[in-house]
């Protein structure tokens, strides 16, 4: 079967992402990667919780005084909305609307960039007030946890931007449908991790 075969909305399969053997492999592959990523994040989360507020005697920084809820709220809204926009992209994929997929994926990237900009601002602010990576066990654990998530966001943005650029004019085929689908699953997982970060790091941090 030619993976570049042209389709019309009439004969486009309802589950194009898993219509080919390669699509099925990508589908189960991205999920098993995410299961291993769950364990990676569990280790940095557990480390953060164990080392929260720990540092040299007389350390002036604590989670309660450091974190700002309005900023965390903005970041949460941006990432949560970007999750919905990638659902819209997958909806248009089901209807074989290539333009819709590209447009909504591009909106997802823009929202992700907004999130990343706020995170860079936040990190820059912490370093500026003296809360750098090597300041304490607390700061190392915090930057490792939130930074690992930020790295995932960067990878996701590069990945989805690459997909958009490479497939802008190709139209939807059984070759690129699994690629878009895997990227969208990965992007949702970034949001899953962020739900725990805003709850455990920011909200529970402010509670003390």
């Amino acid at each position: 079967m030619d993976v570049n075969q042209k389709f019309t909305p009439q004969n486009w399969p309802q589950h194009a992402e898993t219509a080919t053997m390669e699509g099925k492999n990508k589908f189960v592959g991205i999920w098993i990667f995410l299961a291993s990523d769950t364990v990676l994040f569990a280790s940095v989360f557990a480390t953060y919780l164990a080392l929260k507020d720990q540092g040299p005697a007389g350390m002036e920084f604590s989670a309660q005084g450091l974190f700002e809820l309005p900023l965390a709220f903005m970041m949460t809204m941006l990432l949560l909305t970007s999750s919905l926009t990638s659902v819209y992209a997958m909806y248009h994929m089901k209807n074989h609307n290539a333009k819709g997929v590209i447009t909504w994926m591009a909106i997802t990237v823009l929202l992700g960039l907004g999130f990343l900009a706020l995170e860079i601002y936040e990190f820059q602010h912490y370093v500026h007030i003296g809360f750098g990576y090597t300041q304490s066990a607390f700061s190392s654990a915090f930057f490792t946890l939130v930074g690992t998530h930020g790295l995932h966001v960067i990878i996701g943005l590069v990945w989805i931007t690459g997909l958009i650029l490479r497939n802008a004019k190709r139209g939807l085929t059984l070759y690129n449908a699994p690629k878009f689908f895997a990227a969208s699953i990965y992007w949702h997982f970034i949001d899953v991790v962020w739900v725990f970060i805003f709850t455990v790091v920011y909200l529970m941090g402010v509670l003390g």
Binding site: W31, T38, A42
Partner: peptide
């Protein structure tokens, strides 16, 4: 795999 990963995550905590 996902729930298994979740369980291993729980043991870390």
């Amino acid at each position: 795999f996902m729930w298994g990963g979740g369980f291993i995550a729980f043991t870390f905590f």
